[in-house]
């Protein structure tokens, strides 16, 4: 009678991440042993049947067969326990999966950080542009309202404002000088007085000043329009008056 090969005892080991390959090898080995045990049991059953039919003392054969069946069942249970233990260890000890999950989460965090950085860069480029449109100098007004040449800063626009105010003050001084000369030369000059009378008599000419520009603008316009004749007559009248005053001082002490 054949005897059943004793299999390995089932190993109830805790899952170890480093011995996962060993567990897999052990599982494959125990599974192969169980498959071999199937054919071995079929062969043993046929042998027991043949021995029972051909034996004289069948009682002994039956007892041997019982004993063999008991050992076979124990062996099968042992193999099944070993296989289930190895498979359970393989399924529970999925440390590689957890490690892969951790690595993927790490990569996801890195990609999220990169995305945040790129979004920050794009937003900063959208908010602030260093290169502003530049125009030629002769296309810019003398007193631009808001145009800023260098990035819209107020300090940069101050020189233009001071320049424009200086030009305005210079024009006002020129106008006041011209008006003084006109006032000086007006009493002695008949032509100018008659001209002023004419101008006063004609309401159109006197009231033709632009209400938006005001009387100063009107005087300046008159000064510019009547400039050559008035300037020459004023100068002559000024000479005459100085001569008269000098004669009076000499005559009357």
């Amino acid at each position: 009678m054949t005897t059943i090969q004793s299999s390995k005892q089932p190993s109830h080991q805790h899952p170890d991440p480093e011995s996962s390959d060993e567990q897999l090898t052990r599982f494959n080995k125990s599974l192969k042993e169980l498959r071999d045990l199937r054919s071995q049991l079929h062969y043993a059953a046929d042998h027991c049947e043949a021995t029972f039919l051909s034996a004289n003392n069948r009682k002994v054969v039956i007892e041997d067969t019982k004993h063999y069946i008991c050992e076979a069942v124990v062996t099968v249970v042992d193999h099944l326990g070993s296989i289930s233990s190895n498979l359970n260890g393989l399924l529970i000890g999925d440390f590689k999966v957890s490690q892969t999950e951790i690595q993927i989460d790490c990569m996801k965090q890195r990609i999220l950080a990169c995305q945040n950085y790129t979004h920050h860069l794009c937003l900063s480029n959208t908010r602030w542009k260093v290169e502003f449109p530049k125009h030629q100098q002769h296309y810019i007004l003398s007193n631009p309202p808001i145009t800023n040449k260098t990035g819209g800063s107020r300090d940069a626009s101050c020189p233009d404002d001071s320049k424009s105010t200086g030009n305005a003050e210079l024009s006002v001084v020129k106008f006041s000088i011209a008006k003084a000369i006109v006032d000086i030369g007006s009493p002695g000059d008949k032509s100018t007085s008659s001209r002023t009378q004419d101008s006063e008599s004609s309401p159109k000419s006197s009231n033709s000043c632009d209400p938006l520009l005001g009387p100063q603008a009107r005087g300046a316009r008159e000064y510019h329009t009547k400039r050559p004749a008035a300037q020459g007559s004023n100068f002559l009248s000024f000479l005459r008056r100085s001569k008269r005053s000098a004669y009076r001082k000499i005559l009357y002490g």
């Binding site: 359970n88 399924l91 999950e101 993927i104």
Partner: peptide, 26 residues
């Protein structure tokens, strides 16, 4: 044992599918 093993294999398969999708997304 078959039922328990199927359940564990199903959970493991689900985890692997999730990892595969995450890897594809990355």
């Amino acid at each position: 044992f078959e039922a328990t093993t199927k359940s564990k294999l199903a959970s493991l398969n689900e985890k692997l599918d999730t990892l595969e999708r995450r890897l594809e997304l990355l």
